[in-house]
Write a protein that binds this DNA or RNA. Structure first.
Ligand SMILES: [Mn+2]
Ligand SMILES: [Mn+2]
Ligand SMILES: [Mn+2]
Ligand SMILES: [Mn+2]
Lengths: 216, 216
DNA sequence: ATTAAGAGTTCGGACTGCCTAAAATTTATT
DNA sequence: AATAAATTTTAGGCAGTCCGAACTCTTAAT
């Protein structure tokens, strides 16, 4: 196992490769590598029985591949939690550090961190932290953009993207805020929401709304 | 900069390459790589002006190389301190984790860790932690093996070697213990010392005594 | 059905960092 | 001083990961 192989498994997981078949292009885009490099690496992962590849159709994780992927996600999100809770990092800044530390984290270290942090359930972006057996609860796929006017929902998680998080820190919208969808402007205009607790009106851009997931 | 280049600079530093010339063999032994690999890597570090190499004579750090080396040592020892103080690792177990984490640690992360740990001066083995400018205090090079009978000294640091640390945890000798050298057995036999605080008699093997440094 | 566009695969080539073995050089021993 | 031993350098290979370009396959448009 190498850092890059781990990152390939993780991106396949994050793109939904547990059930769905993921395309070469999605992976290439996600990792910022050339399509040819993806095909090559996938061939190696197939040889190690970590993914299944149906040529020209797509790639998905095996049970074994899923285990590696969830463990890496666990490490990533534990580090993110540590950086925010203990080292006072901002939400926007934790991802790049965690992206590196995750690969140098033994099982023992992950468990020790988990204990130190008192077994956090979610990373700072609201992502679920798998347990040491790789178990994790399912997450919402309902984006804020799909919430109907006047429906009340709770903010569950943000996609972990630097620009998005910087944008959101400007809006003042946070994980676990209970909000009511107020109004969808037409032509991909912003979505206005109101935060229940303080009745604050917040505008969320159309694009950002697609990267914020909520539940009832 | 790559992890291996960093490790090369660090081992040269630890072997005394700030003043002295360090031999190819010392580096090869220290890193567990072949002599040919050392020559090759040194050529690259020379090209980057991080070391000076006089063929067949030895290798030493430039000012620039020293900066990288001290920063890496800083990161290594901060991680060791974190693992012991916060995650309840044993002295013996921190080195391999720190050996990896050090390479994935940004300046910002190192400083945040330093603050979180309240600016520790020493790693768990008694090594000095350089500050963020790379400044560090000099260390003792007086080994316990060289202490004369009946002289009183304080244990300052241990060489960070797994077997040694496991051995020492068995003897009960700790950093900062004030001890009196009692008796050198002949023929590389153990050195008996007495701990002042509790008058405990402790036997230290000849070899271990060479890896324990003390000061008056 | 044919064609064109898009996506995926194959191939040749690059670069890093490691190895072993052979050659060169220095140091130690006789 | 001559020889042997140890050390260092050089040379040739290999594994991992990347790229770009050419080729193949699938899908969408005509
Ligand atoms: Mn990563
Ligand atoms: Mn996250
Ligand atoms: Mn290291
Ligand atoms: Mn140490």
């Amino acid at each position: 196992m190498t850092p890059m192989k781990e990152d390939y498994l993780k991106i396949i997981f994050e793109l939904g490769g547990v059930q769905k078949k993921i395309s070469n292009k999605q992976i290439a885009l996600g990792l910022g590598v050339a399509a040819g490099s993806v095909t090559e690496m996938i061939a190696k992962l197939v040889a190690e029985k970590l993914v299944i590849h149906e040529p020209y159709a797509g790639i998905s994780l095996t049970k074994q591949g899923l285990r590696f992927a969830t463990q890496l996600v666990r490490k990533h999100r534990l580090w993110e939690s540590f950086l925010v809770q203990k080292l006072n990092y901002g939400l926007q800044d934790v991802h790049p550090e965690a992206e590196l530390l995750e690969h140098e984290t033994s099982q023992r270290l992950a468990n020790a961190l988990d204990t130190f942090l008192e077994h956090p359930k979610y990373c700072p972006h609201g992502g679920v932290i798998p347990d040491s057996d790789g178990k994790y609860n399912d997450i919402s796929h309902l984006s804020l953009a799909d919430v109907k006017d006047d429906e009340k929902v709770t903010v569950e998680r943000f996609i972990d993207n630097h620009e998005l998080l910087v944008y959101l820190s400007g809006t003042g919208l946070h994980i676990n805020d209970k909000i009511k969808g107020l109004h969808h402007d037409p032509f991909e205009g912003p979505i206005q929401v109101i935060r229940m607790i303080d009745q604050a009106k917040i505008d969320i851009s159309y694009k950002a709304a697609h990267n914020i997931f909520v539940h009832y």
